[in-house]
């Protein structure tokens, strides 16, 4: 059985999706100020790693890395509303790329598992 990552089209699909997704994020006034002064190429490489993970592809994702990377943003007020907006942009991007809703739901479920790490919280129930 093919994995979600393979079904979506592997690395080529991620490359196409990163452009569309990152463009939506930078156009969204609810969240784009978080990216002010950021090196776009480095950020795109990170977005690509994140999307590969969200697509269930080969990745070296660790919750700790995600915590460390976002800790300074959480201090400045990064919260659930921003996480939701990013997820919404991802969903919209995948719809534009004609990814079936069933697969989008799978991707969003994977993204959801990073919420506590990104926002620097202990996982619910821990």
């Amino acid at each position: 059985m093919s994995t979600l990552y393979e079904k979506l089209g592997g690395e080529a699909a991620v490359n196409a999706a990163v452009d569309v997704f990152y463009r939506h994020v930078l156009s969204d006034d609810r969240i784009n100020y978080w990216f002010d002064g950021i090196d776009m190429e480095r950020q795109a490489a990170k977005q690509k790693a994140f999307m590969t993970m969200a697509f269930g592809g080969p990745n070296s994702y660790t919750g700790d890395d995600m915590r460390k990377a976002h800790a300074h943003l959480v201090e400045k007020g990064l919260n659930d509303s921003h996480f939701d907006a990013v997820a919404e942009n991802l969903s919209k991007s995948l719809q534009e790329l004609a990814v079936p809703q069933e697969s989008i739901d799978e991707v969003l479920a994977i993204v959801e598992t990073t919420r506590d790490d990104v926002l620097g919280r202990m996982p619910a129930g821990a």
């Binding site: 990152y22 463009r23 002064g37 776009m40 190429e41 795109a44």
Partner: peptide, 15 residues
């Protein structure tokens, strides 16, 4: 340069 990088990308240029 930095502002225009972002604007060019949003206006449709690939990174």
């Amino acid at each position: 340069v930095q502002m225009m990088q972002r604007k060019a990308f949003i206006a449709g240029a690939s990174l």
